[in-house]
Measured scan of single mutants.
Amino acid sequence: PPDDERKKAEKAARSGNEEKAREILERLGYSEDEARELAKRLR
């Protein structure tokens, strides 16, 4: 489910793995720019 994926992205971002967070968010349908912004904010 998307919620689980989003949680994974948050966890990745918090542990400093912004790249992985961005990949997950892009898979969820965010654009590259949106995903980058979100990954930064989740950190």
Results as ranks from 00 to 15, higher is better:
E5Q: 10
G16M: 05
A21P: 01
L42D: 01
E23V: 08
S31Y: 00
D3N: 11
A12Q: 08
P2C: 14
E10T: 09
G16W: 06
L25S: 00
A13G: 04
K8N: 11
E23Q: 13
R6M: 15
A13Q: 03
P1Q: 13
P1K: 13
R43P: 01
A13S: 04
R43F: 15
R22T: 05
L42F: 14
E5F: 10
I24E: 02
G29E: 01
A12N: 04
R22F: 04
K8A: 13
R41H: 08
R6Q: 08
P2M: 14
K20T: 09
R22N: 02
E26M: 15
E34R: 06
I24G: 00
L28V: 02
A21I: 08
A13L: 07
L42M: 15
K11N: 12
A13F: 06
R27N: 08
E23T: 08
E37D: 08
E23D: 07
E34N: 04
K20L: 15
P2V: 13
R41D: 03
I24N: 01
Y30F: 11
L28R: 01
G16K: 05
E5I: 07
K20I: 10
E19A: 14
S15P: 02
Y30K: 01
E19K: 13
A21C: 10
L28G: 01
K40Y: 11
A12D: 03
L42G: 01
R6E: 07
E37K: 12
E18C: 14
K11C: 14
A39G: 01
G16L: 07
E19D: 11
S15K: 07
K11Q: 14
S15H: 09
K8M: 13
N17P: 03
D4H: 10
E34M: 07
S31L: 02
E10G: 07
E18K: 02
L38P: 00
A39H: 02
A35K: 01
D4N: 10
L42R: 03
L42H: 02
R22L: 06
R36K: 08
S15I: 07
E34K: 05
G16F: 07
L25T: 00
E32L: 08
Y30S: 01
L38S: 00
E37C: 15
E23F: 07
N17D: 15
K20V: 12
E26S: 08
A21Q: 03
K7V: 11
R41T: 05
A39M: 08
E10W: 14
E26N: 05
A12S: 05
A13T: 04
R43N: 06
A35G: 01
R27A: 12
K7T: 13
R14F: 07
N17S: 06
E37G: 05
E10Y: 15
L25K: 00
K7A: 12
K20R: 10
A39R: 02
E10D: 04
E26H: 09
P2T: 11
D3E: 12
P2A: 13
G16H: 05
K40I: 07
D3R: 09
